[in-house]
Design a protein around this nucleic acid. Sequence first.
DNA 1: CTCGGAATTCAAAGTTCTTTGAAAGTTTAG
DNA 2: CTAAACTTTCAAAGAACTTTGAATTCCGAG
Lengths: 188, 188
Amino acid sequence: MSGEKAGRGSDAALAAELAVADTIGRLMHFWGFKRPMGRLWTVLYLSPVPLSAGELGDRLKMSAGGVSMALNELEQWGAVVRTWQPGRRRDYFQAESNIWKMVRRVLRDRELTLVREFRATLQNAEASLAEVPATDPRSGGDQDQELSYKRERLRRLAELAATGESLLAALVAGRAIDPSTINDESGS
Amino acid sequence: MSGEKAGRGSDAALAAELAVADTIGRLMHFWGFKRPMGRLWTVLYLSPVPLSAGELGDRLKMSAGGVSMALNELEQWGAVVRTWQPGRRRDYFQAESNIWKMVRRVLRDRELTLVREFRATLQNAEASLAEVPATDPRSGGDQDQELSYKRERLRRLAELAATGESLLAALVAGRAIDPSTINDESGS
DNA sequence: CTCGGAATTCAAAGTTCTTTGAAAGTTTAG
DNA sequence: CTAAACTTTCAAAGAACTTTGAATTCCGAG
């Protein structure tokens, strides 16, 4: 039952490790990454020595292809480092262990981008609404009222997005953030 | 092309509105909700008057069933309010417009729960590892070293999770948070 | 070079998540 | 009560996403 290739540790310990890997996998997945990335990172994080793709695939019951793809993506995010022992033929991997550093990177390279794209969409929309002529024939001015309402709402969304971007930027820069500066609400 | 049931606004304005709805739909989806929820909420948020399920389905090209399910979920999160005008038979919906309030609610009811579950998993794992006997026959003490390494790492994850929970709780309570209090890293 | 182990790629299979639409359930005006 | 007007439910179809594994490429030792 033990004595397998890289099958160290007691069964209970092994199972516990996998449970943690799965939980972190779910967490990562929830955060927009692929589940296997979280599982791989966890096994590496818990291992005192670098592991090869083969060992990782064995422990996590993943195909070689899956391991390769996930490790590459982890590497791109700086969550894993590829090393290799001269002489040995295969690559070895280690987990980046500064988690906050990784989080910041994701906030910077992914979330911040998302918010910026959102702001761009809002600006387009504001521009479109600004171009709408004004007062239609004798429809009662309802149109105008509706339009200005929408403009106001878009402005508000834009404000909020701008605030969100600053908050994110602050986090990325390691500065403190104060949610009480969020100026929301208006008059539903 | 205009003059349809509830088809107000210029084409360009209409298109802009849908674009915003789609973008917010994507954002919401990225944040773990269903895309249609974001789309519906947006249309409601931009509408000066409450809308019925039918009108929403028309504007967003969604089936009645889809509209109903998504609206119910939005209602459960407090993102939308159901009203109804006496006399009129159908339900009308309005968007909650205090966005930060909604965000806080999600942080409280969903993310905080996730973090707590994560902490529980970690505690289980720590317990499992604690029960592992110690020093196997003459395997050189490598086992022990590996075990204590894993224990240390789990402890670190647990610390981080605890920090995360406090930060989330602070946000929920509207207090400021300072990421520099995150004590991460160790010695890869 | 050449060989062989290892990594990568990617189409296809598999799985999960979404959306639909028809049937069943509710509600209220009459 | 009844019927019309909605809403909800849910099985099934469809779409999106994941995972596999075989073929290919890469790389280093000899």
